[in-house]
């Protein structure tokens, strides 16, 4: 069932995500309404918006879980419409909902996801060892995920999501429900990944986290209303925190 135009080459571009007029309708309801934006390679891009603004739908489309109704997107140089498989190989994903297997050990979880991403066995072992070292979880390799604290679980999920060295990681509210210290540590992990050239696409409800992003965008009713660096946006709205930007914007 291979289509003749399904190429495996990527397009060279300074952007790792390019979205043009992307739209998703569910029946008569337009969840995502002609949004366009670009994300540069290695950038930390914050994707903000009230609940139900269309953030999760957008992420699901960008991860090729959901077919867009119309519009185009290029993810890691691959066309969203025709190169699903290549996109899947080059992205990582982690959601607010903890999504590792509770009844498998830390090591088994990482091994399972590493293997389905086709990382060679020996290489995988080394990568798991170094991830666990980075997370300070070496001693927990054989612990069932069920019994480790939520903060560690979220960090573990992040490490698992970047195990196959994706070009882009989509993080859907990765820090909801964890304490401020773990959130800080989590952002250290994000910075470390970004410094290696991984593009981070993150949604959050914590406004202090929005300040950590290179650029942010604010979505409302399926449309992308604002986009820019945190300081640009604060200046444009004449306020001194992203929280005020958000509130002011949502009130309008």
């Amino acid at each position: 069932m291979k289509l003749p135009f399904r190429k495996t080459e990527a397009i060279e571009s300074p952007y790792s995500i390019e979205v043009k007029e992307l739209t998703k309708c569910f029946g008569s309801f337009t969840a995502v309404d002609h949004i366009s934006f670009q994300v540069k390679k290695g950038e930390i891009f914050g994707f903000l918006g009230a609940n139900g603004a269309g953030k999760t739908t957008t992420i699901r489309m960008l991860c090729s879980l959901l077919m867009p109704t119309s519009g185009q997107a290029t993810i890691a140089g691959y066309d969203l419409a025709t190169q699903h498989k290549m996109i899947k190989r080059n992205i990582g994903y982690m959601s607010q909902k903890f999504s590792l297997y509770d009844d498998l050990t830390v090591f088994e979880n990482m091994q399972m996801f590493g293997t389905i991403y086709n990382i060679p066995r020996k290489e995988l072992k080394e990568r798991i060892a170094s991830s666990l070292e980075m997370l300070n979880l070496q001693d927990q390799a054989k612990t069932l995920v069920y019994s480790i604290p939520l903060g560690w679980k979220q960090k573990l999920a992040f490490a698992t999501a970047i195990l196959h060295r994706p070009k882009i990681v989509f993080l859907d509210e990765p820090t909801s429900g964890v304490d401020p210290i773990v959130r800080r540590e989590f952002w250290d992990l994000i910075y470390a990944a970004a410094s290696k050239g991984v593009t981070i696409f993150v949604t959050t409800h914590y406004m202090d986290e929005a300040e950590y992003c290179g650029r942010i965008s604010i979505m409302s009713n399926g449309q992308l209303k604002l986009i820019g660096t945190p300081s640009e946006l604060k200046e444009r709205m004449g306020v001194d925190s992203i929280e005020q930007v958000f509130v002011k914007f949502v009130e309008r």
């Binding site: 991860c63 090729s64 879980l65 498989k85 899947k88 190989r89 992205i91 994903y93 959601s95 909902k97 903890f98 999504s99 590792l100 297997y101 509770d102 996801f113 389905i116 991403y117 086709n118």
Partner: peptide, 13 residues
């Protein structure tokens, strides 16, 4: 329900 299905579907499997 636990969200792991989405992880599997996002993976190139």
């Amino acid at each position: 329900e636990t969200g792991t299905m989405r992880m599997l579907l996002i993976a190139p499997v």
